[in-house]
Design a protein around this nucleic acid. Structure first.
Lengths: 214, 214, 214, 214
DNA sequence: GATGAATGAGGATTCATTCAT
DNA sequence: AATGAATGAATCCTCATTCAT
């Protein structure tokens, strides 16, 4: 400490930054592959750093989780915010839900992030839960205000439904199933619009015909 | 050898039976509390038996899982079969789904059984999956035949939706949420019957009326 | 005890005798196959009796070893005795040594018996060691008396050499090697008779002179 | 990563080196005392290190064996090589055999090394067997070429004889016995040199003829 | 800051041995 | 007598975590 001014954060060493990044990437990869109980040594090995280095950057397992998943959650939240301005509120919601499935299917680590949101008890969990819940809340509110969906469902409910739908993400063909189920779910949310029937619009043809989605 | 008749299964010793039962109960409890990777020693300790006893009855972790969860799955399957004869097919399906939630909420170990169905790779998994899928299949087929619900959803889809809904079973208030979500889901499945439409009134009531929901 | 006369040994039950025999056979087989640290449960299982039965007959592992190997040792001792009357004393010795190799090669459990003789510390060991040592002693004494072999080698030495030669009994082709080595050994034991040379007879003479064996 | 040059092997930490050495010594001691199936925990305890440390240095039991015994085998091989230049070939062989006994008597772990050579199935075994067999082979060849010993005995045979002679290394007074037996064995190998005798012809063939080696 | 060595707790599994039936 | 259930000690092995260099 001597002679150093405490307020000025030392510029981090370049290699430290690089190592931190490497560990994060490796953690994402390893946790995706072997479940999030994978050994931290495995993560360090994968990153090509010593276990001590990993611990320096992330003093606890939780800290590593947090760092790994925070950015994933950000993405989902951001997307929801962008969709706020979509013209058709129910479609905005539907699109967000479907986008989540894409993310999970595509980005390693996204499921874990969602699982964390569902069950975690860390600081990150609180933050994430809040972030996503708020994002969905706005999408939901618009649709309810437009009289397009029922009003007794909370943002939290929707989030949980979404997470549940992604739960079987390790089964073959889960993605198609998940998308289908989410559509059913959104359909279930709708208040049936002037059913006298034009039927022109909505996506879901076949059934659509028999019953324009109500 | 003396007096051993191979054909006649020896009457099992009373204490053996008791211990086996205790271990099963403990396993259910411990796995529910701490996840199914809980240590087998913990199970034995909880049951008040030596670890060796546990191993005698269940030589592998899988064997224990199997014993623990098979009966749970049976119950769910049985219930589905009983509901086959219900007059209103959609209601039969809804009731079965809701009953699952009750089971999960009530019976320790039921979620794990469902999780097993979702992800397992054991013999038991295959059996369970088949059992439940078949049970749902019949419920579904009736409703589809009656023209009451969409026909592009498979029994497997429904099972997965159900499991997903129970995924957050460790959150406070999850049960209410799950029931609500399942209702939404079933509503989404329906083909709306001749909606002459008033639509004037509040969003969700309509359905409510048609079916006071529960 | 009441009313029973202690002196009269109860006639053993027929099944008890049969079980005892079965366990013995199984022990020999199992120990041969898996080494003599094989589990006692494995022996019991192989014998088709309960582990308790095994313990009743052989309260300790040592007791079982003893019972298993005693008869093997008897055979070797008996053979040595029979060879006492052979005309040519060196040949008698050689034949006994070679016969041992045959036994080891043929009869499962014979090596273990020899190993026991070499290293054991049980009562059986003492007995066996004595039995064989005495048997060899007589063979040896005759040959020495006939002036056919050196007189500074003890029966114990010979026994140990024999056991050593059988040590590699689990290598392919060990038997041929062992026989060859034993021949060399016996040759080494010989005192060359009348070295003035007839040369007609035995191989090794000369050396004795050249190097008095130190 | 900072400052890590992959090519330059990091200087090993002092304590690591010390621990490795300690474990090796302990392993040698413990294996000598209790057989090579002694528990690894016992080895660690004896070395005064944690079991984890032992595993770090020697990830498998085999790895430990290898480290323990390789140097022993080297010594024996080296000695044999040094003796190649001895003037009297039979004496060179004899001295090497006797030196082995000294080693076994003196250096804990040497027997186990020999046992490994006799029975092992690891990579080390192959190497050791080859090393020693080759060493003996040269000693043997010289003696045979000099017409001093019979030519139908292989290096492998000699190695096995040696190992057998050391087999009873845990008996009191085994050393004297072993030396005596080895002398007998070497005597048995000799072709008697021009015994007073004319019998001009080549050394070992003679016997061959007289006694076709059986 | 980076590294990897040291440590020990903890979980799985096997078996010898004792005992209730 | 026979059986096999119960028990726990003993081992193996893996990791999370701390620390010396």
């Amino acid at each position: 400490m001597a002679g150093r001014s405490p307020e000025i954060a030392r510029k981090p060493r370049a290699d430290a930054v690089r190592n931190r990044e490497r560990v994060l990437e490796s953690a994402k990869a390893v946790f995706s592959a072997g479940g999030s109980e994978a050994s931290l040594e495995a993560v360090a090995r994968h990153a090509g750093v010593g276990i001590g280095t990993l611990y320096r950057h992330f003093p606890t397992r939780e800290a590593l989780y947090e760092a790994v998943y925070r950015r994933e959650v950000e993405q989902l939240g951001d997307l929801a915010e962008q969709l706020q301005c979509a013209p058709e509120p129910v479609e905005a919601l539907r699109r967000w839900l479907r986008a989540n499935v894409e993310f999970v299917a595509t980005k390693k680590g996204m499921v874990a992030a969602l699982a964390l949101v569902a069950h975690g008890s860390t600081e990150l969990h609180a933050y994430s839960f809040d972030r996503l819940t708020r994002a969905i809340g706005t999408l939901l509110a618009r649709a309810v205000a437009a009289g397009a969906i029922r009003n007794d469902i909370s943002a939290e409910d929707v989030l949980r439904a979404l997470i549940g739908m992604c739960y079987m993400h390790d089964q073959p063909g889960w993605q198609t199933t998940a998308l289908r189920l989410l559509d059913v779910f959104v359909d279930g949310l709708r208040v049936q619009p002037a059913v006298t029937m034009t039927k022109s619009e909505s996506p879901r043809p076949a059934r659509q015909k028999a019953k324009p989605s109500r």
